[in-house]
Amino acid sequence: MSRLEMKFSELRGLNKAALVTFITAGDPSPDITVPLMHALVDAGSDVIELGVPFSDPMADGPVIQAASERALAAGVTTTDVIELIRGFRENDKSTPIVLMGYLNPIEIMGYEDFASSIADAGADGIIVVDMPPEEGVELGGVLKAQGIDNVHLLAPTSTADRIRLVCDDASGFIYYVSLRGVTGAATLDLGEVRSRLAAIRVHTNLPLGVGFGIDSPAAAAEAAEFADAVIVGTALVRIVAENSDSPETLIRKASAFIESMSSAMDLAARNEAAAE
């Protein structure tokens, strides 16, 4: 059983949704990434989503693009990201790590090299944002051979045909993009998300995560009612950006924010259990 499967099965037993926290590897500097990952887990994060810096992150909003730019300015390479994963795994054998990145830095390394390196370092899954299933047959095969879950996105605009195609190709979990926009855009209509998730469940048994626009404990708690995972990205990266000159403050504030998310989700789960 993969780390992701184990985590989701454990949380299902507790009737809880997973809290997935996103940071960009090496933002604002490589030294802070591993301590920050451990702090996020201590604060209640169930899965770490680790952004691989890219110069042209076209599906991300300005906050996450700026995180990529800070990491690149600090000289972070894909090889460095792999070493950060290895560093984290020295003290945490169980928390799943899902990478999020774009295809070009993977292609230049070569699919085989990349997949075996991240697997060896202890990564569990990857979201390649600009790689739809249609173009991803070769990469998909290589990832599978290395036991890396191929996490795909679904969007509010995905048609029934596309939902089937994406669900058939995906593993680990499905990441539902809950907003029509880039990461960190506009406001969220959770009612619509709830009904879309129900439509997707018809096609897959994979856990369904909701991301894009989850920026408060209340939104996290509400999404946790109907999603298997709640993904917090932009709101967390903003805290990193605002405190990039002080590692201690950064870690303290990021931890406090994730704790508030986690407690709100726990409370919602207890209330739901009590109501049943």
Binding site: M58, A59, L103, V129, D130, M131, P132, E134, E135, H152, L153, L154, A155, T157, S158, T159, R162, V166, V177, R180
Partner: peptide, 22 residues
């Protein structure tokens, strides 16, 4: 029909744009 010129071209975008391109 998938937009390939030999190995080049194609559609490498996030799922959020696939429907619009289609």
């Amino acid at each position: 029909e998938k937009g390939h010129f030999g190995p080049y071209g194609g559609i490498f975008v996030a799922e959020t744009l696939m429907h619009a391109l289609d």
